[in-house]
């Protein structure tokens, strides 16, 4: 788990991603942003759910305002994690953005059916990738009114 220094108004983001390259790219993209967010990263599905439920080593973890979830992650994959979050009355109000390399229609449909808040395919091109991550930040952090912290 990594955390960054942030002003008190900033939002907490949970990044569930096993590829360190992608983690780095997303962090690089977000570093360029105007807002400083607290980004926590976990590398598999089980850790993600433990973090959200403040279990194990995550008892002090803050409740995130936004979850960026990859689908193809070890131990418990992103589809299951999404289903559990949306089935949990305490967690389901947290917006979940699926950020994945899968373009399969089945994944897209299934994600929305399990109430993903949006589905984004990782662009192959670096510039587009950075643009997409910035767009996510812009939309979910500055435009959207998020539910109040419990």
């Amino acid at each position: 788990m990594q955390t960054s220094a942030r002003p008190p108004q900033s939002v907490d983001i949970l990044l569930v991603e096993d590829n360190p390259g992608d983690v780095r790219l997303i962090q690089e993209a977000l570093q360029d942003g105007k807002l400083l967010n607290r980004i926590a990263t976990v590398s598999d599905g089980q850790k993600a759910l433990a973090y959200l439920r403040k279990q194990g080593s995550y008892t002090q973890a803050p409740r995130p305002d936004l979850i960026l979830l990859d689908l193809n992650i070890p131990r418990k994959d992103g589809r299951e994690v999404l289903a559990e979050i949306k089935a949990d009355p305490h967690l389901r109000s947290i917006p979940v953005v699926i950020v994945t390399s899968s373009q399969a229609e089945e994944d897209i449909l299934r994600s929305y059916n399990t109430h993903a808040n949006c589905y984004v395919t990782k662009p192959v091109d670096l510039e587009k990738f950075v643009a997409v991550v910035k767009a996510i930040e812009e939309f979910w952090v500055t435009i959207v009114k998020l539910p109040p912290k419990l």
Binding site: N19, G21, L25, K122, V124, D125
Partner: peptide, 16 residues
């Protein structure tokens, strides 16, 4: 499909 992931890494970081 699986080739795409490492390829994206190669492409992205060489670009970076």
């Amino acid at each position: 499909h699986d080739l795409q992931e490492p390829l994206r890494m190669v492409a992205s970081f060489t670009q970076l």
